[in-house]
């Protein structure tokens, strides 16, 4: 699970957002597609400019991952800066933020850990990079 997906997930029980991440294993995979057209930065830019990115999710996700990223991905991932409010295209830090977002949303994978609903502490496990958002039968109605 990358922060790209975390950004779209909410608690299926309470709609609490964003889900709190505790990661015990993370991985950095440089994203280069089979048809690299220098494009993925545009993907992020497009997400941001079409207002498809929930900024509170980005801020929350980075807050939860910062410690383990700085510890386990030292040398691979450096210089990520996420401002508290979403920068506008004419802000001087805009390009730098885009660069950080590209790494954060597309290149850092949470392999093992949990997602937690902060309002009731319900835990959703992440195993093999796959978060399990299935509800138990008594949680559905």
């Amino acid at each position: 699970m990358r922060l790209l997906t975390h950004n779209t997930l909410q608690s299926p029980l309470t709609s609490s957002y964003p889900l709190r991440i505790t990661a015990t294993e993370i991985k950095y995979i440089k994203s280069s597609g089979l048809m690299p057209e220098e494009g993925e930065k545009d993907f992020v830019k497009n997400l941001m400019e079409k207002k498809k990115l929930e900024w509170s999710g980005v801020v929350g996700g980075w807050r939860d991952l910062k410690e383990i990223v700085e510890r386990d991905l030292k040398g691979e991932v450096e210089g990520i800066e996420i401002p508290e409010t979403q920068p506008r295209p004419n802000d001087p830090s805009y390009t730098k933020t885009l660069k950080s977002l590209h790494i954060l949303l597309l290149e850092i994978h949470v392999i093992t850990g949990t997602l937690v609903d902060s309002s009731n502490e319900r835990v959703f496990k992440i195993e093999g990079g796959i978060p399990n958002m299935i509800l138990l039968e008594d949680e559905i109605e």
């Binding site: 699970m1 990358r2 997906t5 997930l9 299926p12 796959i130």
Partner: peptide, 15 residues
Amino acid sequence: EIVRADNSLHSRVFK
């Protein structure tokens, strides 16, 4: 990106 989720409950899992 893979999420284990039930499509009949999609709108509860994805914002």
